[in-house]
Design a protein around this nucleic acid. Structure first.
Length: 586
RNA sequence: CGGGGUGUAGCUCAGCCUGGUAGAGCGCCACGUUCGGGACGUGGAAGUCGCAGGUUCAAGUCCUGUCACCCCGACCA
């Protein structure tokens, strides 16, 4: 009972498993040679091949022991930096009662992404896609005095958003792990200070994780004055488009980036307004080709649903509508929805494809994009099917209710800060920080007593990081044809020792074990590949899994008194003695 | 929500058109030979052919329904 031997007679070799060490023969490695059928992007394909994740249902994944090691690395860094920034950790429920969401109004407003269900007593719940309601409920019970503020709470929690279309593995999954933080403040100055602290903490987190990222100005939402930044990991496979200046640090989500007004004034009209027959020519491409006019000399007119009838939005033919900008126009109800064909016909008498600003009924507001507003002698729809106008001109032929910024920026546009030109690159949103004002605290009746003894509504900020998505984003940035190349901070192990053909020479096994002890003893997180695979299969596995540093222990190397070292990005191995190895990895 | 596609062994897929004993490669198990870039041989285990109904002497195959998964689109006139 108290002796050195155990009841089961099992004496594990030292060390079987601890914080730093792992024998792969006792771990679960499940790689595949073939590409999975359903994976389209590198990270999804490699995570499946490496055996990090397995799909359980659409957008729902199991994290294997290997995947979890990486996930925990990410979590640990986030946790550490959040603590350094003064945030305190807690854990809120994933299942939330409807009543809370009715208070904020989001039970109905959040939309179909909110997963709702009932318990056995027919009480309604949702699986939390975010936790503003719960933290406010917590805060209104726990926070009584301005003396307790400012305070920032955070948690690392599983969330669920019933995405229209989950894809790319954990990049856009329905169930995912998020770090979310919420700060409470008595005034804007305090909010600004915490916002800055979170911005800096996020920058440190993504830097430590070894990611190439940019903090970009983001859509601030319908409530004016709010501040928001997204943290984007740059990757061609990203789902977001980022505009950034080549000469300054300006960076913004394309949704937000301002398209500045052209510097050149509108030329005077030189052509006569002429209606031309354009049978079946509906798109700008078709009309432009038919009339031999470039798209940039055409005006396209979109009819959207306004608060009071349809609203016409006019853009240059080669530009695209930015729906976020459109939704902010006062004539619109806060969202940009194109009118249906029947509505278009009722309002104009023509069908989509032949709509233009010339001769539109007086009750339809005409909002013209800045770039379209400086055109002269342009082509536009004739408001009669099968016809367009050439030589059209604003004011003379077509009414302008207002000029506004309506379009998406394109590469080559001037930077809104006046310095340089915009480029557009793709990014993966891994973090997003907001200032919410009193949006949630007011709806949820959060109040604390101020210095004067009167109740005050605190303002809040919220700060999210997509923990699971970071893992995929890191792979998008760091992989080659052989597999994943982990940044050191995220690697499941820092180094792996490969034991080659130990049966041929007992010294190989002994040397590997000895090195394994030395490395883990020095605090180097090390895996020992004692699975007994053939070398080719072993190397292929380890490269797929992406362990940054590999040491090969073999009969051949020991004969020379050396170990063979190869970094994951190295083209060739080099021989090193034990001290040099420990110095390199320590 | 609309359109398209796919469901057959753990994985990648063939077989379906033209109904008649369930297949391959990889992986897995055993033995042997191998052993520095995913070895070879022999033997073996493994599938209610997504599910339900129908047609038929007979259904993986034809028909109907249904479910799941994937892709594209969700109106840029």
């Amino acid at each position: 009972m108290h002796g050195a031997t155990t009841h089961c007679g099992y004496n594990p070799p030292f060390p079987l498993q601890n914080g730093l060490a792992m024998r792969l023969s006792k771990f679960h490695i499940a790689t595949t040679r073939e590409d999975p059928a359903d994976a389209e992007i590198a990270s999804h394909r490699l995570m499946l091949r490496a055996g990090m994740i397995r799909k359980l249902a659409s957008g729902i994944y199991t994290w294997s022991p290997l995947g979890l090691r990486v996930l925990r690395k990410v979590e640990a860094i986030i946790r550490e930096e959040m603590r350094n920034a003064g945030a305190i950790e807690m854990l809120m429920p994933s299942v939330q009662p409807r009543e809370l969401w009715d208070e904020s109004g989001r039970w109905n407003k959040y939309g179909p992404a909110l997963l709702k269900f009932r318990d056995r007593r027919e009480q309604e719940f949702c699986y939390g896609p975010t936790h503003e309601e719960v933290i406010c409920e917590f805060a209104r019970n726990e926070l009584r005095s301005y003396r307790q503020l400012p305070v920032t709470f955070f948690q690392i929690q599983t969330k669920f958003r019933d995405e229209i279309r989950p894809r790319f593995g954990v990049m856009r999954s329905r169930e995912f792990i998020m770090k979310d933080a919420y700060s409470f403040h008595m005034d804007q100055a305090s909010q600004d200070e915490t916002y800055r602290a979170m911005y800096d903490a996020y920058s440190r987190i993504f830097t430590r994780l070894g990611l190439e990222f940019r903090a970009v100005a983001a859509d601030s939402g319908a409530i004016g004055g709010d501040v928001s930044h997204e943290f984007q990991v740059m990757a061609d496979s990203g789902e977001d488009a980022i505009a950034f200046s080549d000469r300054s640090d300006y960076a913004a989500n394309v949704e937000l980036a301002e398209a500045v007004a052209p510097a050149t004034p509108r030329p005077a009209p030189s052509q006569k307004l002429t209606r031309v027959e354009t049978p079946e020519q509906r798109t700008i491409e078709e009309v432009g080709a038919f009339l031999n006019v470039p798209a940039r000399q055409c005006v396209k007119t979109l009819l959207v649903r306004g608060t009071d009838g349809v609203v016409a939005l006019c853009l240059r033919g080669d530009h695209e509508l930015n729906e976020v900008k459109a939704a902010k126009q006062p004539e619109l109800p806060g969202e940009s929805v194109l009118a249906g064909e029947a509505e278009v016909r009722a309002a104009t008498g023509a069908t989509p494809g032949f709509i233009g600003p010339v001769g539109l009924p007086q009750d339809i507001p005409v909002i013209v994009d800045r770039s379209a507003a400086v055109l002269a002698d342009f082509v536009c729809g004739g408001n009669v099917d099968g016809t367009h106008y050439t030589g059209a001109n604003w004011e003379r032929d077509a009414r302008i209710t207002r000029v506004a910024d309506l379009r998406k920026v394109v590469a080559g546009d001037p930077s809104p800060d006046g310095r340089g030109m915009l480029s557009i690159a793709r990014g993966i949103e891994v973090g997003h920080i907001f200032q919410n004002g009193d949006k949630y605290t007011r709806a949820m009746n959060v109040a604390v007593l101020g210095e004067d003894g009167k109740a005050r509504t605190p303002i809040t900020g919220c700060y999210g990081i997509g923990v699971t998505r970071i893992v995929a984003a890191a792979i998008e940035q760091n992989h080659d044809e052989r597999g994943i190349i982990w940044p050191d901070a995220m690697a499941p192990w820092r180094a792996v020792i490969c034991v080659i053909n130990p049966k041929n020479d007992p010294a190989v096994d002994a040397a590997a074990e000895s090195l394994y002890r030395d490395m883990t003893g020095r605090g180097i997180e090390t895996a020992l590949d004692d699975r007994g695979l053939r070398p080719g299969a072993m190397f292929a596995d380890l490269e797929l899994i992406g362990i940054p540093h590999r040491i090969v222990v073999s009969e051949r190397g020991l004969a020379a008194g050396r170990f063979e070292y190869r970094g994951r990005r190295d083209a060739e191995s080099r021989n090193m003695d034990r001290d040099a190895l420990l110095a390199l990895l320590g």
